[in-house]
Amino acid sequence: MLLPTTVVGSYSVPEWLERLKTDFYRKRLSAAHLSDIEDVAIKAAIKDQERAGIDIVSDGELRRDNDVDYLLARMPGVRPTTTVKSYYFDYYDLALTTPLTEQPVGLAEDFRFTREQTDKPIKFSFTGPFSLSRRIRDEAYGDRAELVRALARALNAEAHDLVRAGATMLQIDEPFLAGYPEQVALAVEAINIVTAGVEATWGLHVCYGNRYARPSWEGHYTFLFPTVLDARVDQLILEFARKGDEDLPAIADLGWDRALGLGVLDVKTEDVETSERVAKRISRALEVIDADKLIINPDCGLRHVTPPVARAKLRAMVEGAAVVRHRLLGTSEDLVAAGDSAAAD
């Protein structure tokens, strides 16, 4: 399909769910009740995506407390210094006291639940080894690079487990990488450990952070190159809506010839893009990236916007992609018009 639409991972967390999840971390709600509530929330999130017309859906990561702890805190050997949080979304202080095992922590079960709820293709995402390593105090390896590689091996086992459960599209998120541009080589080495031998379509998402709807870093995607060309992934999924697309030509010039996930929705604002604006953003990308290489997605997860805003943004994205798709599949005059329109953005 030309210009498929998808999400980056997380979906809007309603205020009531936030309160209940926080209640769980303050020991006011049982794990069983929370699990039931999350089941319902995931079903609703999938329904929202389907109704918006998203081609490749996710579970919205609604079982997760944040992008790190849901994975890390469950790995054998990782110990939180406290198990109470002010907000469910806060990070734990985590310490690794013994070397990691390559025992899956159970993401496959999350995938199976999602699989049962939809006939749409599913993308399943998890945080990558480099970013995970930035949130852990290492008392086991004594060498941060070794820690990253060990995390990668654990995630590789997780990925195999996910594929056995039926996953075909997996995405590695590296939200911390932009803060450590000098360590891209280590991150890419670890990504290749994660993906090794796993038969799936792999995406790599690199953003500038989305903690509490704020960027954690600033900079340019050129820091990824040329090292990222060695990453054994099929898609690079980047944010452009908030930052602007000035890095797009460089990404093409620097040799990225695989698929590009184009961020067309700013997830850090409640302002809803119009479908026309989305269409213009896609059209501008088409000036430097071939249409068959483009995937259309938000900049990052939608967890910080309200449900009505998330729904409206997704609808705008789907409509904007449809407009451009129609132009591309129409006459050559249509294509020229799309280019002219984009130039006016």
Partner: peptide, 10 residues
């Protein structure tokens, strides 16, 4: 303000 800030990662 501290409580509101905390909710916003501040």
């Amino acid at each position: 303000l501290a409580h509101i800030g905390s909710r916003k990662g501040i």
